[in-house]
Nucleic acid binder design. Sequence first.
DNA 1: AACATCGTGATACGTTCGTACCATAAAGAG
DNA 2: CTCTTTATGGTACGAACGTATCACGATGTT
Lengths: 199, 199
Amino acid sequence: MPRRVDHEERRTDIAEALLRVAARRGLHAVGMRDVAAEAGVSLRLVQYYFETKEKLLLYGLRHLAGRFGERVTARIRAAGDDPGPRAMIEAMLGAALPTDEESRTFHLVYTSYAVLSVTDRALAAQPFVKEPDAAEQALVALLRQAEEGGLLRPGVDAEVEAVSLLALSAGLGSSVLVGQRAPEAAAGVLDHHLDRLFR
Amino acid sequence: MPRRVDHEERRTDIAEALLRVAARRGLHAVGMRDVAAEAGVSLRLVQYYFETKEKLLLYGLRHLAGRFGERVTARIRAAGDDPGPRAMIEAMLGAALPTDEESRTFHLVYTSYAVLSVTDRALAAQPFVKEPDAAEQALVALLRQAEEGGLLRPGVDAEVEAVSLLALSAGLGSSVLVGQRAPEAAAGVLDHHLDRLFR
DNA sequence: AACATCGTGATACGTTCGTACCATAAAGAG
DNA sequence: CTCTTTATGGTACGAACGTATCACGATGTT
């Protein structure tokens, strides 16, 4: 049976199984055996490719972040070539809203991880803790660029508004996730604020 | 030894021990034995006052929500008698920001619970899921009241802004919690938006 | 052809967790 | 002064979980 196999592909398969289980039952409730069953492999295999649960977790998180990045760039590309700053901002913020199954999973698992990182310093030390920071800097740059192009209303503070938009979309995303609000309503609120910033 | 004892007081003690452990090690990691040790009682006692872990959890969550309510009203009272709508809104939103140990605990545990409720319908069915809804309605009412009093800038949509302020403070709170931002910076951003709404 | 390595399965071990059970001392009721 | 109820301690049980161990067939190398 054992042919030579692509380890990276295998790891990806297992990581996606992990994410599916996490989306269904919650990140706290996923065990090695669940992941193995979901991936259709034996427990031993999961152990073989990821020696420990923590490594599996971290790989899964990285994979999730990667998929989210692809999602954002896909959305930007879908906005045509050389889209304006507003379209790019809309692509970024819109990708983070839990609209379909994938973005719901992203939001849920990422929030779970963020909560865990507060009390677990091994997780907090991980590189993707600072991913929100990167998003913030990108947003500031986009707003500044729009400002220089005369696209913004006068008196807009790029830094404050970047922070606000990010916090807003995170908060709106959570309210959608728990079923308090429809995705469309959340998108509408975001749009309202972009209208407020842009001419 | 066994004198007649106030059960409600006992339950409160144990619930606060639960919250302390949850703040320190994360809600997912709290066990009955941890709570018992933290409260300085035997495991059996925790079982005696709360028959099951789920009941303990729910009681703890209710207790947390109650303490938060007291915190808000205390802040409102501290703003003088008959404070204006803006002061009341500031009191509400400011209480939710993780500034001291108690509000950090509140934010962390409440977020943990929200995450859990996405994948656990027993939790999702609980009454305090709709607490954000109540806060939203209160905010809308305050903004409408301010509008009628001519305190708002023209063209402000009370409903949209109420949703925005709530989502904003939730998002800002989380970023403070994970150490991305200082509490003062978050408060500053909130203030900036209140300045935007009020004359 | 012989052999070391890789991929995979089955299963066992030690721990932790929630819960259940048994015992018993103190306190109020009659 | 008995007797039932209340409050509390100690401990045991069964399940689940992460991890480790043993075994073995297939593959590539020399």
